[in-house]
Design a protein around this nucleic acid. Structure first.
Length: 142
DNA sequence: TAGGCCATCTGGTCCT
DNA sequence: AGGACCAGATGGCCTA
């Protein structure tokens, strides 16, 4: 085993011992709260979703209710049909699928131990950031 | 049982 | 006009 390999193992060990939360500064721990979206509560309490996932269709008009409330911009409303909505859902699923594929690829690139549980997406990103920094330091010092 | 993570749906906005 | 992207909401699953 060469020096770099042992350094890498130490690095992974350190990552596991340190944990990600301690690496967060106050900035990262701040929770962003949208300034004007207080009416979300209405939507939670007065939820119009059906229970079964396949029945998750809004019972009211598809374009009623706005998640981006209080915007002073003029809104050009886009009326979409049920077919278009379904097509958009399919596209979104595909998009999320390719995003997850990219995350899986990134998981394979960052060093972890085989017995460790699968990294979550946020853990993968944070580990990748630290790993890249580690490698850059390594390059500068060799 | 609470909290974390994730998949999915959805509507708004951006871009071509 | 329509697809891509984004963020909020919601529910299911899993683990401590």
């Amino acid at each position: 085993m060469d020096v770099h390999e042992s350094m890498l193992i130490n690095f992974v060990n350190d990552m596991n011992l340190i944990g990600f939360s301690q690496k967060l500064g106050p900035e990262e721990e701040q929770v962003f709260i949208a300034p004007c979206c207080t009416n979300n509560q209405t939507r939670i309490n007065g939820s119009s979703w059906s229970r079964a996932p396949q029945d998750r269709v809004r019972l009211d008009h598809p374009m009623s209710g706005s998640s981006r409330c209080c915007s002073s911009r003029s809104k050009r409303r886009r009326i979409i049909t049920g077919v278009q909505r379904q097509a958009a859902n399919v596209r979104e699923r595909k998009r999320m699928f390719s995003l997850n594929e990219a995350f899986d690829e990134l998981r394979r690139k960052v060093p972890t131990f085989a017995y460790e549980k699968r990294l979550s997406r946020i853990e993968t990103l944070r580990l990748a950031i630290v790993y890249i920094s580690f490698m850059m330091d390594l390059l500068e010092n060799t």
